[in-house]
């Protein structure tokens, strides 16, 4: 048996596409969205490289939201059934919110469920279960989980949601303070907001800017300046 020389063929934060060779040799381990092919580790998805010790993984830059347990998402009611509601989730699958998980109040048999959540309502909910067949169960029985009345909804790239929220919510609370809008960000990339029309415009512009420049370091300071600028422009 020959001894292989191991080599890294890319560097941290490189953009890779499917089929790109990331590393040669057995000294490196294939992480998320990579796979081993013979002596090589190849990328399985378009994204940024992240190297942690010997493990190489790809952080996706695009793609639909993948439902995860304990994520808080915003969805729209698309169907009212006998025992709950079907919720559109901005992922490949719709979710189900059953009466049992929707409210702790007592609901009579045969009660009109549209009194609680009606068609087209936006609901903030938490994912409690995802099966192998991607059936998603939701709950609204926790603080902050409820129906959002009025306001507007924008959709951002779900892979950029962590940047929109910021560390411990720093980014989103900055926008809330600057624009006086109520804003809720779902992990599935759906953002609900409500405020004065002018304020909403500024908030949307700021969120779009974060989405486009998510890769930049020191983004919080940049957005802070941007918000000041926009507030002057719109005379808020």
């Amino acid at each position: 048996m020959t001894t292989h020389k191991s080599a890294l063929l890319i560097k941290e934060k490189d953009v890779v596409v499917p089929g790109d060779e990331l590393a040669q040799g057995m000294d490196y381990l294939p992480g998320q969205w990579t796979y081993r092919k013979g002596d090589y580790i190849l990328a399985e998805r378009l994204g940024l490289i992240n190297i942690e010790g010997r493990a190489i993984k790809v952080i996706p830059l695009s793609g639909k939201y993948v439902p995860k347990v304990n994520d808080i998402i915003i969805g729209k009611v698309i169907d009212v059934t006998l025992n709950g509601w079907r919720i559109e989730t901005n992922s490949a699958y719709s979710a189900f919110l059953s009466i049992k998980d929707a409210t702790s109040e007592f609901i009579n048999r045969g009660a009109d469920l549209t009194k609680i959540f009606d068609l087209d309502d936006n609901v903030v909910a938490k994912i409690i279960n995802v099966t192998s067949q991607k059936l998603i169960d939701l709950t609204t029985k926790a603080p902050g989980l409820k129906k959002m009345i009025g306001g507007r909804v924008i959709i951002v790239n779900p892979n950029k949601v962590p940047r929109v929220i910021g560390k411990q919510g720093s980014m989103i609370s900055m926008i809330k303070d600057a624009t006086n809008c109520k804003i809720v960000v779902g992990q599935n990339g759906i953002v609900w907001m409500e405020g004065e029309p002018k304020n909403e415009v500024v908030a949307i512009k700021a969120i779009r800017k974060i989405e486009n420049e998510a890769h930049i370091s020191g983004l919080t300071d940049k957005i802070k300046m941007y918000l000041e600028e926009q507030k002057k422009q719109y005379a808020l």
């Binding site: 499917p18 399985e44 998805r45």
Partner: peptide
């Protein structure tokens, strides 16, 4: 397909 973030072995 790659742009859409679909997992793929190769182009």
């Amino acid at each position: 397909l790659a742009d859409a973030g679909i997992p793929m072995k190769d182009l």
